[in-house]
């Protein structure tokens, strides 16, 4: 193999520093959340304890974080399923040249770049003027979709650009109906990428702050609850909560990535048998 140029080693160091920059702070609060009961918001550690995690489970200590967690989790699932279904349908639509596709495409991009606070404000105003109560499952849900759907659609674009249309033609040649072609040929082929769409749908919803700020109503989602805590809680209990939610996010991300990996392997194993015959 060719010898590495010197720039490789310089860049490796820069890359390592970048990764440290990305993860260092999170790891630090991970460590600090095990601060002893006397400890403060920064080093030194005054003993090691589970005190601050314990405090999270006390009802009176902070707001309703478990309720907020349940709501965020439900909302995340709701947004995830909707994002997958709507993105796949729109992805299929964009493969045809239908009138209005250009406008819809630019609307989707607009949805991605528009400042989140405008969505929050606008949706809040509409509900206000219509005399409806904002609620995380209605106004909050819709507002979050304006953030997750563009990502879902962009992934679908990438998927369908690499999609080999001859599979569909083969299915049709063998007499499959349009629906059968989608159900038994297209969907199984794109399934691993749908895991990616689902991952975006869930995590972006679970962490969304700005778009839910004015649209969640009287019941906070978890990011809103955490932000509320930062203004009136000055103990490592905030770190403990941060560590727990980050651990939960990592768990979810890990589960999605492993699922995608297993699917890809299964495909490699059960895929083409070309050349294995005679």
């Amino acid at each position: 193999m060719e010898k590495r140029p010197r720039s490789f080693y310089v860049l490796t160091v820069i890359f390592a520093l970048f990764v440290l920059f990305l993860y260092g702070p999170t790891i630090t609060i991970g460590i600090l959340s095990f601060q002893g009961p006397e400890g403060g918001l920064t080093f030194p550690m005054r003993g090691v304890s589970l005190n601050w995690f314990h405090e999270l489970f006390q009802q009176q200590a902070v707001g309703d974080i478990w309720g907020a967690f349940r709501r965020s989790f439900m909302l995340g699932l709701l947004v995830m399923v909707t994002t997958v279904v709507v993105s796949v349908m729109a992805g299929l639509a964009f493969r045809k040249k239908f009138p209005g596709s250009g406008i819809l495409f630019y609307l989707t991009i607009a949805s991605l770049v528009i400042p989140s606070i405008l969505i929050s404000l606008g949706v809040g105003l509409i509900f206000n003027q219509l005399g409806l109560k904002v609620h995380w499952a209605t106004s909050g849900f819709g507002s979050q979709l304006t953030w997750t759907l563009p990502f879902g659609l962009l992934i679908m674009f990438a998927v369908f650009n690499r999609f080999d249309k001859s599979f569909e033609e083969a299915a049709r040649d063998q007499g499959a109906s349009a629906w059968q072609t989608i159900r038994f040929v297209v969907l199984p082929i794109i399934a691993p990428s749908l895991i990616g769409v689902a991952l975006f749908g869930f995590t972006l919803s679970y962490d969304e702050f700005a778009r839910t700020l004015l649209t969640a109503g009287s019941y906070n989602t978890l990011p809103l609850e955490i932000f509320g805590m930062t203004t009136n809680v000055t103990t490592p209990v905030v770190y403990a909560l941060g560590t727990l939610t980050t651990a939960f996010s990592l768990l979810i991300i890990g589960a999605f990535l492993i699922a995608a990996w297993i699917m890809a392997r299964r495909r490699a194993r059960l895929g083409s048998d070309a050349g294995k015959g005679v």
Partner: peptide, 24 residues
């Protein structure tokens, strides 16, 4: 078919992107 498949996305964007901006 294209319109029907694009309909859910269109509805969400009209309701939660276009309408809010017009309201603002």
């Amino acid at each position: 078919t294209g319109w029907l498949q694009a309909a859910p996305l269109t509805v969400v964007l009209l309701g939660f992107l276009v309408a809010p901006i017009i309201t603002i």
